[in-house]
Computed example of a mutant assay.
Amino acid sequence: MAAREPCKNAVKVRTPSGKELELIPRKVWQLTPSGRKGVKVGLFQDPETGKFFRQKVPDDYPLCG
């Protein structure tokens, strides 16, 4: 599998602690259930706690990570 380039653009997301921040995802991938339109999911790290969480990103965001 070819290595993807790192993510560069920040996305406005709500962290698990409830704050809205602009974060750059570590990785973005496509989830496509059979027979339905897919969504793009990003892996983010909460700057306060260091925990990772997943959040939907806009459809025009490139796959990266």
Rank of each mutant, 00 (worst) to 15 (best):
D46R: 01
P6G: 10
W29A: 05
K40R: 15
P62D: 08
R26T: 06
T49F: 01
R26S: 10
F52T: 07
A3I: 12
Q30M: 15
P16C: 08
K51H: 07
K51Q: 09
G65S: 13
T49V: 01
G50E: 02
F44M: 09
A3H: 13
L21M: 09
M1K: 13
E22L: 11
D59E: 15
L43N: 12
M1D: 12
L21T: 00
R4M: 15
K12Q: 13
G38D: 00
R26G: 06
R26Q: 14
T49E: 04
F52M: 09
V39T: 14
V39Y: 08
G42Q: 04
L23I: 02
C64T: 06
E48L: 11
V11G: 06
L23P: 00
K19E: 14
R54Y: 15
E48G: 04
Q45F: 00
Q55I: 02
V28Y: 05
L23C: 01
G35R: 01
E22H: 10
A3L: 14
G35Y: 02
S17H: 05
W29F: 15
F44W: 10
V57R: 02
P33T: 00
P25G: 02
Y61N: 01
S34V: 12
E22R: 12
S34I: 11
G35E: 00
Q30C: 02
A10T: 12
G42Y: 11
D59N: 08
R36D: 07
K8C: 05
K27E: 15
G50C: 04
M1P: 10
K40I: 09
E20H: 08
P33N: 03
K40H: 04
R14G: 01
L43M: 14
W29E: 12
A2I: 12
F53N: 09
P33S: 02
V39N: 12
V39R: 15
W29G: 09
F44N: 05
K8A: 13
K51F: 05
D60S: 15
P25W: 01
D46T: 02
E5N: 13
A10Q: 14
P25C: 01
T49A: 00
P6N: 10
Q55H: 14
P33W: 04
R26F: 04
G38V: 02
L23G: 03
Y61A: 11
G18D: 08
A3T: 12
